[in-house]
Amino acid sequence: MSLVSTPIIQVRDLTMRFAKKEAVSAISFDVPRGVIHGFIGPNGAGKTTTIRILASLLVPTSGGAWIDGANVVTEPEEVRRRLGYMPDYVGVYEGLSVQEYLDFFALAHRLAPARRRASVADVIELTDLGNLLETEVHVLSKGMRQRLCLAQTLLHEPDLLILDEPASGLDPRARIEFRGLLTELRRLGKTVFLSSHILSELSSICDSVSIIEKGVLLADGSIEEIQMRLRGATVAYEVTLLEESTEVESILREIPQVGSVLLEGRKLRFDWDGEDALIHQVWGALAARKIAFTGVRREEDDLESLFMSLTSGEVQ
């Protein structure tokens, strides 16, 4: 298998027990390269534990995880070289300026002097910290600290970024900016694995998600795939008719792929079990009977409704 096609994160039956509590229970998932993958779950679901295992900061009880082919247990140094990890709380050194902070971490990553300067300049440009270089890091706002920490994780040019709750505590503007930054990183070919419980943040940028609750992985894949798995092939459509019609119900029932039909005044709601490409049969049948409609809405489950339908809300 070529390296490019190998998932950048591979997790197999990963389990973590702390004394009597099982924080993570035999979870398995893959994260392909070049995507933004959301790791979603309520507080206490096992997100941070999983992330710390992936960052080689914790040794699991059983199972395993691989970062770009390197085992997190047996090759922790290699794993740390291949990923950039941003913890849920960004600690900074009092007294260092932004420039010095980044220089320090570049040196700690053993970058050669020429590459060190180039890397620091690149991450400063990417994270737009150029006008804060002389500012001491401890006076930075939370949003700027997050940017700084993200810049730090990028210094050694890892292909994978693991970010633990990067958007928590940020104001709306900082969140939007941070989202833009993540999208830009994906464009640059980086894989971003981020945990969050702010679902509205994730739904707009994530290519795929894993949903975890009480240490158990409930769903994994793209949002569409999870939708398909949850409700099968059925899609609900809502049609707004131009005028009320009593025959519309019987017209739709003649089409085998149409499931339940509900008519309330001018609002028609029906389930479609067929392929998306065949939906034109419905519109054709309505047009043939001269039933005009002013609007059609395909009811998509968003990430929030998926999350609500999958999780029970219980915390470990």
Partner: peptide, 13 residues
């Protein structure tokens, strides 16, 4: 206590 330890051991040091 300053939560910089995780960042530090994440480097090559």
């Amino acid at each position: 206590l300053g939560r910089t330890w995780d960042l530090l051991i994440g480097t090559d040091l």
